[in-house]
């Protein structure tokens, strides 16, 4: 296992060393930087082309502004009279779309500059289980994955994350998590969501992955007990592996204050180069550049229903998913120019 981790890393480093020579040093790197951003500005006016010629003078702009204001007031009206719907998990779709996603979007677009690949691997219809690596001390990777699916999926699917029980114990956090569509990571909830045809996101590494030391970055931890595979099998939905690069470096966890964690009832208490030494300022994540890659879906509908009871098959499938995520992680790491760009 350890060998399997070391070899690709060496591979990664050698290729990384090779690349600058090929790319003609710094100038290329600088030129390459706006590369992924360049297609975006043309895409934007392109999308708004029909609207742009209509807005030469102030009246049209005013109409647009008024429409937005009226929309905002209609939203306010629904909210203060309580006339909105939540599902049985407490998911408030309207609040998520209009408010929570808008709050996360600057972090997603401007701060971490997330690049999304393979979002079309998430099916347009029906349930799917997205399995991702977990890292970064704070579970921001899950939230960024949610924004990625929400903003980029062609069918406008909503990701329903499965969260640790700690989330639902904490005040305020549990309320927001439920409203954003998250629910407790247990087989019952996952299966209920998948059977309802939702896209469910799970991070089977849990706190082991989230709170692993910086030195072990991008080394996948044990995938729980593989419960997610049997849930997907029982619901007959495909498993979409997802690899997230960039979250590991946002809070480089160099130490863990175990005693303090135990006193506070937390799974770990991170010590980073800045936290808690700089106080609240130290809690600011580093502006790393993120890539989220959704991989080829692994179909599960070919298995018989009783296959979910076969531990050997579960272990094999769990390993397959894990390998695929790990492999994609290495591939993305090789392609990455720098942690911050």
């Amino acid at each position: 296992m350890a060998d399997a981790k070391v070899i690709p890393f060496d591979d990664d480093r050698s290729r990384a060393r090779r690349r600058p020579a090929r790319a003609d040093g710094e100038t290329a790197a600088v030129r390459a930087l706006p590369g992924p951003q360049e297609p975006e500005p043309p895409a934007f006016p392109g999308a708004e082309e029909p609207a742009a010629p209509v807005a030469p003078g102030p009246p049209a702009a005013r109409g647009d502004w008024e429409r937005r204001l009226a929309g905002g007031l209609a939203f306010l009206r629904r909210r203060i009279t309580g006339e909105y719907e939540v599902d049985e998990f407490g998911y408030d779709e309207e609040l998520t779309d209009q408010v929570l996603m808008s709050l996360l979007r600057p972090l997603y677009e401007k701060y971490f500059r997330v690049e999304v690949k393979g979002v079309e691997n998430i099916p347009d219809k029906g349930g799917a289980l997205i399995v991702a690596n977990h890292s970064g001390t704070l579970p921001l990777d899950g939230l960024m994955m949610q924004v990625a699916v929400h903003d980029h999926h062609p069918a406008g699917r909503h990701l329903r994350l499965l969260a640790a029980d700690l989330v639902f114990v904490l005040p305020v956090v549990n309320e927001l998590a439920r409203k954003a569509g998250h629910t407790l990571a247990c087989a019952e909830d996952a299966e209920r969501l998948l059977r309802a045809g939702e896209v469910v996101g799970v991070m089977p590494e849990g706190f082991k992955g989230l709170g692993k030391p910086f030195g072990e970055r991008y080394k996948l931890q044990r995938f729980g007990r593989g419960g997610f595979v049997s849930t997907a099998l029982r619901a007959g939905v495909p498993i979409v592996p997802c690899s997230i690069v960039g979250a590991e470096e946002m809070y480089p966890m160099v130490g863990n204050a175990r005693t303090l964690a135990r006193i506070l009832g937390l799974p770990y208490f991170p010590l980073t180069p800045t936290f808690p030494w700089l106080g609240p300022l130290g809690a600011l994540p580093l502006p790393t550049k993120w890539t989220i890659q959704f991989g080829e879906p692994i179909p599960t509908d070919s298995y018989a229903p009783e296959a979910a009871e076969d531990p050997m098959l579960m272990f094999n499938l769990t390993d397959q998913v894990r390998e695929q995520i790990q492999h994609t992680l290495y591939k993305l790491l090789v392609q990455r120019r720098s942690v911050f760009f």
Partner: peptide, 19 residues
């Protein structure tokens, strides 16, 4: 809210009508 909407955006096309 409706009165506010009528005051700030009296001629707003679609959004106001839904209000």
């Amino acid at each position: 809210v409706d009165r506010l909407a009528a005051r700030v955006a009296p001629g707003a096309p679609s959004g106001a009508s839904t209000v």
